[in-house]
Design a protein around this nucleic acid. Structure first.
Length: 554
RNA sequence: GCGCCCGUAGCUCAGCUGGACAGAGCAUCGGACUUCUAAUCCGAGGGUCACAGGUUCGAAUCCUGUCGGGCGUGCCA
């Protein structure tokens, strides 16, 4: 049971007690809000309950607070002190007894500390990245890879049953253009003069694919028809890109549970069937030779095309079928991570889901703002037209996985991210990744030393020897970890993790300068060693969630 | 035009369902290594929370409007 729950239960009991004693004429009990005060001088936890109740019971807030405090009965001795402060806040100061219990809990649970069952085994599907299989991943994909993977890590720790999925858009027009691009480069390399398609993919990698075909099989494909050539090249190039995507994701430390092919939807007629179902439900009509979805029935500004006049279904139609399939697979919630350039698509997708009879809130879409790549403060230009861009592979190569992931996870997804390559590469104090990793390496070093000096934690540990401010602050920071995990899960936003990692590292570094772990006093050394071990376990958990390595030495 | 996101210290950004004198990192300035990792620590300066109204006992946070930036507004994906 987390300390908030304990406190909130105590307050609730106090309210009932005060009511029975005639001190507070309340009807119901409002939700009890507890927070960490900004100021350390205001205690470890505070509640505004008296301020909330004051107007209802027509009493001055401080008098309400007084009545509550008088009725509060801390039987377990978790509280050191309770104060009424300011306009009527009640401030709680935790006793070290509770802090020591946190330490023994961490010792017992190790890296499982902070894990919970708030997710209640709800089945969650997180779909992210889903880069088109027509080229290498770009920087923006990297952000979604990091965010999606870390969110999945945290939600799993919070008791959700989470699966990661990559939707492969391996169908339709873009694949044809992709194939044509390869075919044209192939012909070009063999000395033919053919015009490059207007919308073609101009990246150098297209030429590489063509070169490889030539190297392996020469010019034999010039003998067959253009159509056959493109069909063969499409499959080859697709497979190659898909392998490449998997390789890049591996470099990011991301492993998907499922790779879902758009083609499969079409091959199994699921797109057609979904449109038919929508039609049966009365949300489809024909007009101007096309088939339309009545999005306007769900408050959308206009209706959307499902099947074009040329008979080809739209991407949207396939995506509806895809989402129907997701729910059909039994997921309670479906989370999609999309770039801001797709946000106009959210409402219509939700409309479609509603039209199919699913509650639209079962689909959660995280809209992430885009990434700006900088190098030493200067924007790096990228152009889809010329195919000139910095790929995620290059970034990983240059910056490394740890810094890449950490930087991608540092900001709220609501904020556009400035990713400065030079900064991320810098192995200096400007770089928060190393700051956190250094703390980990430092703890590891201390623990190695302590073990060598014969300190061991197998016997009784007298936690009450930990009594200075820097020690207690460190324990309090460790105690926050479950709150962070819960918050990240609830808000579906991983960026508090990096902030916490930095805070925990900072509190540890401070403890390190104030307290010597290994010393003459065996009992004290053991207690501090145990505190170090606890910090190491939690820091390791944080880094694991982030997908950043925890080096034993630096 | 309309929709979504954003506007907080010199820079990059936190600020959870409104709460007590607005936070962090970097940068700047000044200190700390005979002791378990100085990739560290301590201290200082630095803000009309874009602007104007409103709701509230209380607003960076909620509502309305204005200005500024990003993205979107396809029978593209």
């Amino acid at each position: 049971m987390m300390i908030q729950d304990i406190l909130s239960k105590l307050i609730m009991e106090a309210l009932n007690q005060a009511k029975l004693g005639g001190k507070l004429p309340i009807d119901g009990i409002p939700e009890i809000m507890l927070e960490h005060p900004r100021e350390k001088a205001h205690g470890d936890w505070a509640t505004n309950i008296a301020l909330v109740l004051a107007s209802k019971v027509k009493m001055p807030p401080r008098a309400v607070a007084q009545a509550i405090v008088e009725s509060l009965n801390d039987t377990q001795g978790y509280l050191e002190k309770i104060e009424i402060a300011g306009p009527g806040f009640i401030n709680f100061y935790l006793s070290s007894k509770w802090l020591y219990e946190v330490l023994s809990l961490i010792k017992e649970q190790g890296q499982k500390f902070g894990h919970s069952k708030v997710g209640a085994d709800q089945k969650i599907l997180i779909e992210f990245v889903s880069a088109n299989p027509v080229g290498p991943m770009h920087i923006g994909h990297g952000r979604w890879a990091a965010v999606g993977d870390t969110l999945a890590n945290v939600m799993s720790a919070s008791g959700y049953d989470v699966k990661r999925e990559f939707y492969v858009n391996d169908y339709g027009n873009q694949m044809d253009i992709f194939a044509e691009s390869v075919a044209v480069r192939y012909a070009e390399l063999l000395g033919q003069d053919v015009p490059f398609p207007e919308e073609g993919y101009r990246g150098e990698y297209i030429k590489d694919i063509a070169r490889e075909i030539i190297a392996k099989e020469g010019d034999k494909y010039m003998a067959i028809s253009k159509e056959d050539r493109q069909e063969i090249f499409k499959e080859r190039a697709y497979m190659q890109i898909l392998e490449h995507l998997k390789h890049t994701l591996q470099g990011m430390g991301v492993a998907f549970d499922f790779w879902f092919s758009e083609r499969a939807l079409h091959e199994l007629s699921l797109v057609k069937k979904t449109i038919e179902e929508l039609r049966k439900r009365g949300y489809v009509y024909d007009s101007e030779g096309a088939v339309w979805f009545k999005a306007s029935a769900f408050g959308e500004e206009k209706d959307r095309v499902l099947v074009r006049a040329n008979g080809e279904p739209t991407y949207f139609a396939a995506d509806i079928a895809y989402h129907k399939n997701k729910f059909g697979r039994g997921f309670d919630r479906v989370i999609n991570i999309w770039g801001a350039d797709h946000h106009g698509y959210v409402a219509r997708m939700k409309a479609a889901i509603e039209a199919l009879g699913y509650p639209p809130e079962k689909l959660e879409v995280i809209i992430g703002q885009l990434v700006n790549l900088l190098r030493g403060g200067e924007p790096v230009r990228m152009s889809k037209r010329t195919g000139e861009m910095v790929t995620l592979d290059e970034l990983l190569e240059e910056v490394g996985r740890d810094a890449t992931r950490f930087f991608f996870l540092m900001r709220s997804t609501d904020s556009p991210l400035d990713f400065d390559i030079e900064l991320a590469k810098e192995q200096s104090n400007e770089n928060p990744v190393y700051y956190v990793q250094y703390a980990y390496a430092r703890i590891s070093s201390i623990i190695r030393y302590a073990k060598a000096e014969g300190i061991d934690l197998s016997g009784e540990i007298n936690y009450n020897r930990l009594e200075t401010e820097s020690e207690l602050d460190l324990i309090k920071k460790l105690a926050e970890w479950p709150e962070i995990l819960e918050r990240v899960s609830r808000q579906r936003a991983p960026h508090p993790l990096t902030a916490y990692a930095q805070e925990l590292a900072a509190v540890f570094h401070y403890f390190y300068t104030k307290c010597r772990v290994v010393g003459e006093d065996k009992e004290l050394s053991t207690a501090r060693m145990s505190l170090s071990e606890a910090t190491r376990a939690v820091l390791k958990s944080v880094l694991n969630m982030l997908g950043v390595s925890a080096p034993e030495r630096m």
